[in-house]
Design a protein around this nucleic acid. Structure first.
Lengths: 164, 164
DNA sequence: TATTGTTATACTCTATAACTATA
DNA sequence: TATAGTTATAGAGTATAACAATA
């Protein structure tokens, strides 16, 4: 076989499929008692599910978040988007460039403020957002498959309190 | 005030202090119902606590994990360390270089396998590990400060099940 | 042949700082 | 002066691929 890869549906390079299975014979010491470490492990599992749900779309968690936020908040500014994502404005700009470059979103001039853009999903972006929301929701349900509905609610509530 | 920063105890550049406060006036749509998003938010809060606990030590979560693992598993190999951290061997090597460069760990030849190193904490590394464990444990408790002891236990258990 | 550690290289994400144009 | 967006640059972290020594 040559070096060319058929690559079934691998548009994205998958930033982090990193599994983090327990290594047998290793003593994890204090790590097993830390909330922070348990969170990290759970989040890696969540990332894994997320990438499985969005394989082939080139979507990362921040990109998904951006699509959802633009869909629910038409006309939002890049600075607001940056605040939601907890990243620098320059990063929000690159993210927006990515979305615009794929015709998923567009920048429109604002009447009230000549400095800022209003960000909007295109029809294509809205369709993708809907599709991804469906997929991510399904995979998220699978993530909590080992939990009862009540446990799932409890976990969500506990996590919210930890996050402040 | 000039541009020079006294910077009390800022040895590390703090890879991600990124706060991710709720932005007022923004509709988070489906994000508020996703376990994965709740995990992400909680983990960012945990990261924040972690960096506060280890400020000035140049410690990152993987470095802390490595110190703990080496302390509890003397003679562990770089490949095993990589597996625990869920990173490539080349990354484990760089991490080890960092530890060795600061005289926190050392590589010792192995009797049974000429290819592999055995990794050990130095006396200095063991002291730092103990100090950091104390600090991280204290900050981790603060992370769950809004939870009762029973809730904390429940959360830990639920997270373990989510992480498989 | 397979594995350990290593080296070289590249890519993603994010940050900072300086610049412009508006406010 | 302050803010929105932009540009340029840099750094951390991690990945892949190829190589030498050893198993």
């Amino acid at each position: 076989m040559s070096t060319s890869r058929p690559s079934p549906a691998r548009t994205s390079r998958g930033p982090r499929p990193a599994s983090i299975a327990r290594v047998p014979g290793i003593d994890y010491d204090v790590l097993d008692t830390l909330l922070g470490y348990a969170l990290r492990r759970a989040q890696i599992a969540a990332f894994d599910q997320f990438y499985r749900a969005t394989a082939g779309y080139g979507i990362t968690p921040p990109r998904f978040t951006a699509l959802v936020i633009l869909g629910a908040n038409p006309g939002v500014s890049q600075t607001a988007l940056a605040a939601v994502l907890g990243i620098a404005r320059s990063g929000a700009m690159q993210l927006t460039d990515w979305l615009v470059g794929r015709k998923l979103a567009e920048r429109r001039a604002r009447a009230d403020d000549g400095r800022a853009w209003g960000l909007y999903l295109t029809r294509r972006g809205a369709a993708l957002a809907a599709e991804l929301k469906r997929r991510v929701r399904a995979q998220d349900a699978r993530l909590g498959a080992r939990l009862t509905a009540a446990e799932r609610r409890a976990l969500l509530r506990l996590l919210d309190r930890v996050a402040e």
